[in-house]
Amino acid sequence: LESCAMRHIQTFGVEAPCKTVEDLTSGIVMAQALQKIDLVYFNDAWISRVKPEVGDNWRLKISNLKKVLKGALDYNQEILGQHIDDFTLPDVNLIGEHSDAAELGRMLQLILGCAVNCEQKQEYIQTIMMMEESVQHVVMTAIQELMSKETP
């Protein structure tokens, strides 16, 4: 999941470097991806709270990751009209402190859910449909898992 989810997030073309798991642990790439998904909801005021220069400071990373996670969950509830229930939320402490790839994968899964349900979902879904079948399959499974945990 984490490998395919990374491939997917790379298609967003965010400014921040996005090549390794380490690149994503600061939360900045994910915040920028959310902003691409919905610039009105994830506005400049929101993203200004995500600290850009975290270096190796895992406490700052965790702080950013918490904001991204809350943002994605609130977006699901307030804009997409769906409550994600019974889904094992990513452990941001493990991502920030230990660069845990599996937990990062779950975080990216939530962002994937935002992308394929937002106003601009056509663009994101069509991009996925142009990826390799093996990647599409993993993405499909990830979305299906999320959908099974959603309640309106």
């Binding site: 307030e78 997409l80 979902k121 499909m140």
Partner: peptide, 30 residues
């Protein structure tokens, strides 16, 4: 060729799924 058939079936499953996502209505009411 069974491999080609399986590949085509898989493609169909993927296309159906993503097309269904495209036509799914989302958004909070009101």
């Amino acid at each position: 060729d069974p491999n080609m058939k399986a590949g085509a079936a898989n493609e169909g499953v993927l296309a159906n799924f993503f097309n269904s996502l495209l036509s799914k209505k989302t958004g909070a009411p009101g």
